[in-house]
Amino acid sequence: MTDKCNAVPNVAAGYAGIPRSNWIQRIRTMLALHRTRVDLSQLSDDQLYDIGLTRDDVDAELERPMWDVPSNWRRH
Rank of each mutant, 00 (worst) to 15 (best):
R64N: 11
A60Y: 09
R20D: 13
R28K: 13
R26E: 15
M1D: 15
S71M: 14
L48N: 13
T36M: 06
C5I: 12
M1E: 15
L48D: 12
V69L: 12
K4F: 05
Q42T: 10
A13Y: 10
N6S: 15
V38F: 04
D46R: 01
A7T: 08
D50W: 00
T36F: 07
S41F: 03
P70T: 00
I24D: 05
D46W: 00
V58N: 04
D46P: 04
P19A: 09
G52V: 03
G17Q: 02
D68W: 07
R20G: 09
W67H: 12
Y49W: 15
R74F: 01
H76S: 06
T54C: 06
V69M: 09
D68Y: 06
Q25C: 05
L48S: 08
A60C: 14
R55Q: 14
A13N: 03
A12V: 14
D68T: 07
S41V: 03
I51Q: 08
L31F: 11
W73C: 08
D56A: 15
V58M: 03
I24L: 12
S21V: 07
E63M: 03
S44V: 01
E61I: 01
H76R: 08
L62W: 03
M30R: 07
P70E: 04
D45A: 12
L40Q: 07
Y15F: 14
A13D: 04
V11F: 09
D57E: 11
D50K: 11
L40K: 07
L43G: 12
R74T: 01
